[in-house]
Computed example of a mutant assay.
Amino acid sequence: MKGKLILEDGSVFYGQLLSPCQAVGEVVFNTGMTGYQEILTDPSYCGQIVTLTYPLIGNYGVAAIFDQSRKSYVRGLIVSELCFHPSNWRAEGSLIDYLRSRNIPCLYNVDTRAVTRRIRAQGAMKGIIVPADAPEDAIKRLLEAPAETDVVSEVTTERIYRMPNSGPRVVVVDYGVKQNILNSLSRIGCDLTIVPATTSAEDILILDPDGVFLSNGPGDPKAVPYAIKTVRKLIGRKPIFGICLGHQLLALAMGGNTYKLKFGHRGSNHPVKDMFTGRVTITSQNHGYAVDEQSLADLDVIVTHRAVNDGTVEGLRHKTLPIFSVQYHPEAAPGPDDNTYLFKEFLALLRGGK
């Protein structure tokens, strides 16, 4: 079935629809060469239509071990060439069947280079995926539908659950946490209690953790004021480590500010410089907002990491308190495990706090 992507600026891109469906969301692009299943199940993509810049998608199939959450949260997927016959020793099925069984709208045979260039020039924007013969009134209704705001409430856990271990007790505030982050914390021995994003600071402290982890998640950090309030109350009470959205919420809670990037950082090939060692590592990233460095000038924090491509803030550390955060995903190793040391640093803070 023929289909099309329509951006809110009027741009139209044609392709083939895998299934007769439609999608509405913010259209973004990801530059990773692999990891399509992780992208589909990363809660940080909630509310978004993801364009993959790598031309061939689905060639190594899918496997349950690569899922990062209980379901897919993307609103749609746009690819150039979709592989119908995967080949990999770990493949348990095809991406085609995966998309169909989960009702994920997919538009393929698209000029993804043109889509990406448009987003880079105009910025991430709302878009829709519809059949090529969709009536104009239906297209208009979809484009005029209000944008989602608090998408964290859609992806957070509904109940408290545990991943027991023998090490320090850590409360993970789930704003849309990826399974591999939980696995990374568990791997270093942390006894994890995962709580919903709306959990108050008081209820977190009642659990008497040795530290608090602020997870990744989707959307604008300012759209979840309850989370900022909670983090503000936790500062100075427990060691804190934040990743991605958790990093942004921590900056806001300490008095900083955030802003929306033109087209965000999404991919597994983003260079980040450690400002202390001068070392550059390749990181996996997925965010559309960043911390405003000027807003940190009078705060007791220092910038520890910086994006090589555009100079944006990629890491913070409090000058006196056991608090630090990074904007990228150290658990999502795009090859070498160069950034997993951050989990060990958190473990050191937890033991020091005890």
Rank of each mutant, 00 (worst) to 15 (best):
K2S: 13
Y14S: 15
K4N: 06
L207N: 09
K4L: 10
Y14L: 14
D298K: 11
R113Q: 12
I160N: 05
L18D: 03
V74M: 03
V152N: 02
K140Q: 14
L77S: 11
K222G: 05
V27W: 00
T112D: 04
D67L: 14
K354L: 11
S87V: 11
L321D: 01
K273L: 13
V27L: 07
V151D: 02
R75K: 15
D338L: 12
D337Q: 08
T157M: 04
E314C: 13
S215M: 01
R159M: 11
M254Y: 07
S101K: 14
G219E: 02
D203K: 14
Y73I: 06
A64K: 12
A124E: 09
G176D: 00
A197N: 04
D298V: 04
L321C: 08
V170E: 01
P336C: 09
S166Y: 10
T340A: 05
G167V: 09
V326P: 03
L82R: 01
Q37L: 15
G352C: 07
P330N: 02
L349A: 02
V151K: 12
Q122I: 11
L18A: 06
A290Y: 02
L143D: 08
P43E: 00
H329R: 03
D9Y: 07
T340L: 15
S69L: 03
V50Q: 01
A251I: 12
T53Y: 11
T149K: 15
V301Q: 01
I240S: 05
L349K: 01
R117K: 14
I194F: 07
P225I: 12
E26I: 14
L142H: 04
V280E: 09
